[in-house]
């Protein structure tokens, strides 16, 4: 199997597993779920780091740095604001 096909297998299975897990998140936590998903979509930082590490020209380097910054806004902002919300949820 080519690398692409392996990737597709992983993608489909992860999406199915994710759906199973996430569909059981109660509506009361849907906003934190979404901001948490924001943070996880900051995983693009991994791609940006790989690109930046191998950057062969200034243009690629600049694109990489901007991508790192944007993704890190999501990572740090997303996890922090989710934590801020979740600590407000208290039981009586």
């Amino acid at each position: 199997m080519g690398e692409m096909v392996v990737g597709l297998y992983v993608f489909v299975l992860a999406a199915l597993a994710g759906s199973e897990v996430i569909s059981k998140v109660p509506p009361t936590l849907h906003t934190p779920l979404m901001s948490g998903a924001n943070a996880i979509s900051g995983i693009a930082v991994i791609g940006a780091l790989v690109i930046s590490a191998q950057a062969n020209t200034p243009i690629v380097q600049i694109l990489g740095v901007v991508a790192i910054a944007m993704a890190m806004v999501n990572v740090v902002g997303g996890f922090m604001v989710t934590d801020r919300m979740l600590q407000m949820f208290k039981k009586k």
């Binding site: 690398e3 692409m4 990737g7 992983v10 993608f11 489909v12 992860a14 999406a15 199915l16 994710g18 759906s19 996430i22 569909s23 779920l33 979404m34 998903a37 996880i40 979509s41 995983i43 693009a44 991994i46 791609g47 790989v50 690109i51």
Partner: peptide
């Protein structure tokens, strides 16, 4: 993730995709 060939990107991307769709 497919572009840079990294599985953790593909998996997390799929998780976020599923969450958003749900």
């Amino acid at each position: 993730g497919f572009v840079v060939g990294n599985m953790v990107l593909i998996i997390s991307g799929a998780l976020v995709g599923a969450a958003g769709l749900i």
